[in-house]
Design a protein around this nucleic acid. Sequence first.
DNA 1: CTATTTACTAGACACTGTCTAGTCTGGCGA
DNA 2: TCGCCAGACTAGACAGTGTCTAGTAAATAG
Lengths: 215, 215
Amino acid sequence: MTSRPFHHGNLRAVLLEQAEQVLREGGVDGLSLRELARRAGVSHGAPRSHFIDRQALLDALAEQGFDRLAEKVGAAIATPGSFEERFRRVGRAYVDFGVDDAALMELMFAAKSNHPTPALEAAAARLFDTLDGAMPARSGDLAEPGAPVGPGDSPAELRIRFKLLFAATMQGTATLITSSRITRAQGDTIVADAAAALLASDLGTRLLNPLSRPR
Amino acid sequence: MTSRPFHHGNLRAVLLEQAEQVLREGGVDGLSLRELARRAGVSHGAPRSHFIDRQALLDALAEQGFDRLAEKVGAAIATPGSFEERFRRVGRAYVDFGVDDAALMELMFAAKSNHPTPALEAAAARLFDTLDGAMPARSGDLAEPGAPVGPGDSPAELRIRFKLLFAATMQGTATLITSSRITRAQGDTIVADAAAALLASDLGTRLLNPLSRPR
DNA sequence: CTATTTACTAGACACTGTCTAGTCTGGCGA
DNA sequence: TCGCCAGACTAGACAGTGTCTAGTAAATAG
């Protein structure tokens, strides 16, 4: 390693690392490409070789964020316990991530006017796929054939509805905590209440017991 | 009205109006004080008389947003119907607002590092108070005295938990739609499922029927 | 009618993202 | 082995921004 090699070598990785730290400290507004370059000890135009845009940098951060969150959710799913315990753990993992990395979370779920990056879409899809692992086993898919299922009531549909309801609740809980509308303790209560309500709901019972049929 | 009065008269209102439009079209990033000034036909420093900061302008927008949302939620509560219908209506109103004015919604629920404005806090509190109107009547407060209520299980606490769980779900649904993770139709399904699950949950039944007691 | 407060103008400064042209360099094909 | 070339990086420029300052015009209070 010479004193100052012309080619930085792993500028991209360093920039992303610094960016994540800056994001945690100063939010999105405090994140400037020029300062990132300064921190990395390169000229202000250097980042352009790796990120065509400031937005491209933000997209890359969001993508990383989805993967990190998926990892945490996956870990929460892996540890054993009852369904309700599992949902509480997953919910807490989701919410904790969103609160501890609030700025990153905002990036991940920002309203994007411009067309979304395929890589980002894929990362988001990966997270939602991971969430499937928390769902009741695929027993629902094996519900007696010929059962009178209405539109949107097939086992697969039920699973999606269950999952989305859960995800939306956790997402909203994180936002409410982050924006100081509720406390972290209130967030924990929401997570627990949501897990209980979901499993006891019509949606939950139909998924857990494939023999039960609506009405 | 002279040709070009020195005192604009209602610059503040005009700026807020323009800002709301720009916000809808170009998001927060597309909102610049200088362009707002240009649109209003004043010099670039003029807005400073009414908003010390760019952030102050954003705070004022968020405050307006909370009031507008509270108004819509209030209207949804006012129209008659069953509890479940009412919750669906309120939920849809909440989510629709958050989706149609996504950038404004992000402003309202942004993670703020700096200490929050009292006016903004008040506006947010007003919204959450409005939400109380959708809750089951205060019958819960009249549950037989001496009933064995645990910590966090008093009727007042139950109402708060119910309300927050509902609010979090709607908030998250709006975010998921805005960020293109789910479709608007899926959002509607979530709202309906949430209303049903909430009312059927332990939390819901205990609020609706003050005589029932937790096991 | 005067004095003061407020709304606004105009200029400046530091900072940003982005574009451009040029320079270095590691590695690939001949 | 050598030339060369795509990619990483530098350095300068430009337009745009938020914010500060000093000055001016107008509304208002005394």
